[in-house]
Write a protein that binds this DNA or RNA. Structure first.
Lengths: 349, 349
DNA sequence: CTATTTATTTGGAACGTTCCAAATATGTCA
DNA sequence: TGACATATTTGGAACGTTCCAAATAAATAG
């Protein structure tokens, strides 16, 4: 067991050069003679040298740490897992590493992990904020010159870059699709009203309804937790309405799945008896039965995009807030009926 | 915009004490006077001090970095995402942070990220190795005194701790369940034979078959990619066998889903015409139609467990390799027929 | 052979902490 | 009061790098 760490000085001694030279080799400087470089490299390999980034960061000005912090609100949701993977791909290929943490929608946890990341000297931060995050929470970071990119959920008021999907347009096209299928009573189900994403999606819904000449009816907007359970709850209320809706656009796919569950529990077949559209296009959407018609947002793409933007800002040194909305597209599957006749599913009563 | 970083010396000056005292406060030492502590803390808050962990690590011996490296082979698989969350939960509440990377089953990538983590001075590593990982890859880490815990997939030959689920027992109980339902010809479908996990599960299958007095028939073991597509392929071959099986245990849930797809494509209804059992109990298993009977392994639990073990080793200073197999349990749903019939699952939500 | 480039190498002095040994202040007891 | 114990504070000297200014070696010019 090697007791002490092998340092640049050990290398220097063994290779008969100065530590400065070793450092030069480490950075691939062109100042050093080829022969020397070879010798030093050989010694490093031989002694099993491992670079101490901490020490280097200490010396180098501020944020050369090459660590990117990534904070997501729910890693168990495959949407965000995909997003993290997208970030990782570009971050890694740029020679940075990723510091990933999950907040589970807890705002306190979020504060903790961001603080911790800061102590570790991250070069930049990508965050999908927990619900009800205070826009001011990231103020100190940007004040310290650490670029921040907010993804998925935007943070109105925060002076940071953000990438969000085009929630309005997506929901609008979902509504248009249902209208095209002849539906007149279309509900909007799920989601918490206190989020910017909710507002955007609802606005898209309303826009679609009004553009179709249908009246916007507030009774058809039923919020709930943005989860499967929330979907079950919401469809329950929706069905109890006097002038019952015949279709619904859902806040996200999880809600849509819950809506399907709730329909079946009432002996209604999603797709046949009631049309359902989701939002996000999570991996499960295409495997579900019936396969879910949904608005696809490509979380991995958002992750990649966000990471690129962040790296750009890090390299630029100066970060001016920039906002990007990424396009979305409706993926028509089976949950609104009419779709591609599925491989004969035995009709479950 | 604050130009320079606020350091412990700035605090010292402003609070009229020495930097040593500030350091003491930082570490919550009981040596410092209450009044002094209060004053220093106030100044720190006022000047917006942020602790520089890099500098601290530099001074402190070896691995006090409080960073835990986590490497998984496929973050988009919700099984591993759950695992990462499990790790994060205990790691975070112990005041450590998590460095998470995804290898996407690439062995090169794995080497890169592990090297990078090492440069950053991780205190320990939790890894779910990419396929065909060389056991020797983690040698240098443990030689350097950095504890490593391998999860999910074990690494025969590596002298590191590991946590794997009880693959043998799980598969055995799956077979027993099918035997109990009267099946005589039971196939084992999917998975790559070059993995330890495959060997274990196959051994469990064989054990169950033989314990039931049924003959072990190699023709009924059909390997394939451990994916949905692999499942489709495997069931195709299985059905083509002369003495056709009436049931199958699958390498994992993804394969099981593929098997269901393949059955339907041949106008066979999984559950009714052919019994299918999965392994893992991924989130989708209970929502699928028919809901999948499968062996539940609780990835989050494995993550938590692994993290605890790692922390224990870090604190102990010395790490002796320890191997734990976690219990699994068969969850009976609908994919073997007979199960809870009609009343659509309102059960969960 | 000296003067002048050009190529390479090199000692410190940082960076922001923690740790140690030693200094100072405070209190207690005879 | 002096001597001693106890509580609190404090200057350096590390830790492993990078950077700077300056030294040395080699090559070219005059």
């Amino acid at each position: 067991m090697t007791k002490a760490r092998v340092t640049v000085i050990d290398i220097a001694k063994a290779a008969n050069v100065s530590k400065s030279t070793v450092s030069l080799v480490l950075q691939g400087s062109s100042l050093v003679n080829e022969a020397t470089r070879a010798k030093v490299s050989a010694v490093m390999r031989e002694l099993g040298y491992v670079y101490n980034r901490g020490a280097a960061n200490l010396r180098q000005a501020g944020s050369k740490s090459r660590i990117i912090g990534v904070v997501v609100n729910d890693l168990t949701n495959s949407f965000f897992a995909e997003l993290a993977v997208g970030v990782d791909i570009v971050v890694q290929s740029a020679g940075f590493v990723q510091f990933l943490s999950n907040t589970g929608e807890s705002i306190d946890r979020q504060r903790e992990v961001v603080a911790s990341m800061r102590e570790h000297g991250i070069s930049g931060l990508i965050v999908s904020p927990a619900r009800a995050t205070d826009a001011a929470d990231f103020k100190p970071l940007v004040a310290a010159g650490i670029p921040v990119v907010v993804v998925v959920r935007n943070l109105p008021g925060a002076k940071v870059s953000s990438i969000v999907s085009d929630n309005r347009a997506g929901m609008m096209s979902a509504v248009q699709h249902l209208v095209g299928l002849g539906h007149k009573r279309i509900a909007f189900l799920g989601g918490f009203p206190d989020t910017a994403v909710f507002d955007d999606r609802l606005a898209g819904y309303r826009g679609g309804i009004e553009a179709a000449g249908l009246g916007y009816d507030e009774a058809l907007v039923i919020s709930s937790a943005p989860s499967r359970a929330g979907g079950v709850e919401a469809i329950g209320k929706a069905i109890a309405i006097g002038d019952r809706p015949t279709a619904a656009v859902c806040f996200n796919d999880a809600v849509a799945f819950g809506v399907c569950d709730g329909l079946r529990a009432r002996r209604l077949e999603p797709g046949a008896d009631f049309a359902v559209v989701g939002f996000d296009d999570v991996i499960e959407a295409q495997a579900a039965v019936p396969a879910l018609t949904t608005v696809s947002v490509d979380p991995q793409g958002i992750g990649r995009r966000g990471a690129q933007m962040l790296l750009k800002q890090i390299n630029a040194g100066k970060a001016e807030a920039e906002t990007v909305t990424t396009a979305v597209r409706l993926v028509v599957r089976e949950s609104c009926g009419g779709g591609t006749a599925a491989p004969a599913r035995a009709g479950r009563a």
